[in-house]
Amino acid sequence: MSYQIKIPSCIFGGAGSIENVKAVIEKENAKKVIIFTDKGIRSTGLLDLLTDILEENKTEYQVFDDLACEPSYQDVEKVMKEVENTSGDLIIAIGGGSVMDAAKLCCVLKDADYTIKDLLNDPMLAKKQIKTVMIPTTCGTGSEATCNAIVAVPEEQSKKGIVNDSMIPDYVVLDSNMIRKLPKSIVAATGVDALAHVVECFTSKKATPFSDTYAAAGAKLIFHNIREAYNNPDNMEAKSNMMTGAFYGGVAITGSGTTAVHALSYPLGGKYHIAHGVSNAILFAHVMEFNKDACSKRLAILCDAVYPELAGKSEDEKAQYMIDQIADIVKVTNIPTDLKEFGVKPEDLDFLVDAGSKQQRLLVNNMKELSLDDIRNIYLKVLK
């Protein structure tokens, strides 16, 4: 068996590491920068940390901040039309997963002879047109490390991933100052999303020794820091560890891939606009409980990496402990776990089952095959 992993070529970390943008601009000889962000980031003043550096450096820039949260491919098309009218030789994204995904799509769409619709049909068409710098402002999506961009497809009332190695970012800045004032609800949702990445990648059919290394390291950081990062917002060590763990989760995705948790969450985001991290959190423990008999050995190995003090427990006890920890983290971080709170009705069940079953890109990674009845039973657990 041969395997590979692809990661960004240069990663900066630590508080204040945004200053490294100067060196990147110099290395790339960038005269004008295209910035992707959103109005929320602009309002917090985080964008100013970047633009102040660019102005001090006398680097021209143009900001695109009209990005929808969890955008549809039409939203990306709209922004791309504006971007096409500007020149630029480097893209910098400062924001959460939606902002970074849009920037990654721009890096393969700008001046290309294919469209985002073409990429939805055939992601292999994508070719990098312009280099990228990713500056995440949450501690969870891992988008700064991956070759994936997720967009909503309204006509299917679901989401779809465009996956191509050309979208792996060139530079990443993991500056913990970016999440210093992150709202607790976003620490929770993005943190559990990152937790799903590492656990799913470790228990994926496509897991490799490379992806396992990053998934296990990420799991150790996230399991041990997410409660503290949520409960004590001033604990910057915990938040910094979450940011690093989320990055490791993103790297694990490029070598392995997520599974049924993410697959079944896509219709929840696509139709009901439930935040991606929240929809994963709702399903996470239930899917892992379903998977347990097929991946108890893998969960036990992960438990040994995260909680070595439990070495004397049985394989089944370790696997169950990991699932119980997942459920407890979702509870402690106050993420709602009943779909009815989001307007999902029992009569929507047939749609969810059908839409979830179509997410074959991820379902084929799941250790245990899911029948339509299995999918139905998982959704029923969260339609209380």
Rank of each mutant, 00 (worst) to 15 (best):
D316C: 11
D373F: 06
M288C: 14
D122V: 04
V278R: 04
G95R: 03
E70G: 05
A112T: 09
S211W: 08
P183A: 11
V306F: 01
H197V: 01
C295Y: 12
T138L: 01
L221T: 08
V261N: 14
G161H: 09
K184D: 07
D170Y: 00
L125C: 05
A102L: 07
C303R: 01
L380P: 01
A216V: 01
L174Q: 05
K58E: 14
L349P: 02
S296E: 15
P346S: 13
A217M: 10
L50N: 05
A263M: 08
L383G: 09
H286L: 02
S17Q: 01
T132G: 01
K81W: 04
K31D: 06
E347D: 15
S371F: 11
T51Q: 04
S314R: 04
I130M: 14
P209F: 11
S211M: 09
A126I: 07
I323N: 08
N85I: 14
T333K: 10
L370H: 10
A93S: 14
E144D: 14
A189S: 13
F64D: 10
D193R: 00
K22C: 00
I5T: 09
Y307V: 10
N20I: 00
K358H: 07
N177I: 05
F202H: 09
I168Q: 06
T138P: 02
A23R: 07
A103Q: 02
I18N: 00
G40C: 04
A300L: 05
N225F: 04
R227E: 15
E228T: 15
L50M: 05
M1R: 07
V83H: 10
P183H: 09
D348R: 03
D48G: 04
T259I: 12
R376V: 10
L105M: 10
L339Y: 03
G16L: 02
A112I: 12
P183S: 11
S2M: 08
C106V: 08
D328Y: 08
N148G: 08
